[in-house]
Amino acid sequence: MTDLPPDLPLVELDAVLMERVLANLLDNAAKYTPPDSTIRIRGLSSGDSMYLLVSDDGPGLPAGDPERLFESFTRGQKESSIAGVGLGLGLCRTIIAAHGGSISAKPRKPHGVTFEIRLPLRIPPAVDSDEVNA
C-alpha cells in the first residue's frame, strides 16, 4: 500500500542507492512479518525535510535499543533461520547519511514497526517541460 501525495516535493538523491535502501526495507518487512501483514509506504514533507515512512503491522521490533539494528552484523533475531548477515540496515543508514538525512526505527501500536527516512529539501532540480508532458 502506498500513500504518496501528488505534491510531494522533488529531492536530490542517487536513485540507484535509494532503490537499494527501499529494497532492503521492503525485503526485511517481507522476511520478518507474517504473509498476511500489510506493508505501507508513505511520503510527506514538513519544514525543510521530506519523509518516507515504511511501516508494517508484523510482530514489531526485537527487545532492546532499536538503534542497534543499524549496527553492522546485527540482526533482529538471533539464531534465525532467515538468511542474512546483518549488513542491510547499516548500509541503509550510510546511504541516507550520505544524502544528508537520517533513518530510524520506531515501534507501532499495537504492533509492527515504522522505518522513518528524513531527507533534506534543497532547491528542486529543474524539470524540462517536455519531461513533464511525457
Results as ranks from 00 to 15, higher is better:
Thr38Trp: 10
Thr38Met: 14
Ile39Met: 14
Ile39Pro: 01
Arg40Cys: 02
Arg40His: 12
Arg40Ile: 09
Arg40Trp: 14
Arg40Gly: 05
Ile41His: 03
Ile41Met: 15
Ile41Asn: 04
Arg42Val: 00
Arg42Asn: 01
Arg42Ser: 02
Gly43Phe: 10
Leu44Gly: 11
Leu44Thr: 10
Leu44Ile: 00
Ser45Asp: 13
Ser45Leu: 00
Ser45Trp: 12
Ser46Tyr: 11
Ser46Trp: 12
Ser46Gly: 11
Gly47Gln: 08
Gly47Ala: 11
Gly47Lys: 02
Asp48Asn: 14
Ser49Val: 04
Ser49Met: 12
Met50Val: 15
Tyr51Leu: 12
Tyr51Pro: 04
Leu52Tyr: 00
Leu52Arg: 06
Leu52Lys: 01
Leu52Met: 15
Leu53Asn: 05
Leu53Thr: 01
Val54Met: 02
Ser55Tyr: 07
Ser55Arg: 12
Asp56Tyr: 05
Asp56Leu: 01
Asp56Asn: 14
Asp57Lys: 04
Pro59Lys: 14
Gly60Pro: 07
Gly60Lys: 07
Leu61His: 04
Leu61Trp: 07
Leu61Arg: 06
Pro62Val: 01
Pro62Phe: 07
Ala63Thr: 12
Ala63Met: 04
Ala63Glu: 15
Ala63Ser: 14
Gly64Ala: 08
Pro66Lys: 02
Arg68Val: 09
Arg68Phe: 05
Arg68Pro: 01
Arg68Lys: 13
Leu69Asn: 07
Leu69Gln: 10
Leu69Pro: 05
Leu69Ile: 09
Glu71Asp: 15
Glu71His: 12
Phe73Arg: 15
Phe73Cys: 03
Phe73Val: 00
Phe73Gly: 02
Thr74Asp: 05
Thr74Leu: 02
Thr74Gly: 01
Arg75Thr: 07
Gly76Arg: 07
Gly76Phe: 05
Gln77Thr: 12
Gln77Leu: 15
Lys78His: 12
Glu79Thr: 00
Glu79Tyr: 13
Ser80Gln: 08
Ser80Glu: 08
Ser81Val: 03
Ser81Cys: 00
Ser81Asp: 13
Ile82Asp: 08
Ile82Cys: 02
Ile82Trp: 06
Ala83Ile: 02
Ala83Asn: 02
Ala83Pro: 00
Ala83Asp: 08
Ala83Trp: 02
Ala83Leu: 09
Gly84Glu: 10
Gly84Ser: 08
Val85Leu: 12
Gly86Ala: 01
Gly86Asn: 07
Gly86Met: 03
Gly86Tyr: 09
Leu87Met: 10
Leu87Thr: 01
Leu87Cys: 03
Gly88Lys: 10
Gly88Thr: 02
Leu89Cys: 06
Gly90Pro: 01
Gly90Asp: 13
Leu91Glu: 10
Leu91Gly: 04
Leu91Trp: 03
Leu91Tyr: 06
Leu91Phe: 00
Cys92Ile: 01
Cys92Thr: 00
Arg93Ser: 13
Arg93Asp: 12
Thr94Asn: 06
Thr94Gln: 10
Ile95Gln: 07
Ile95Gly: 03
Ile95Tyr: 06
Ile95His: 08
Ile96Asp: 03
Ile96Glu: 02
Ile96Gly: 04
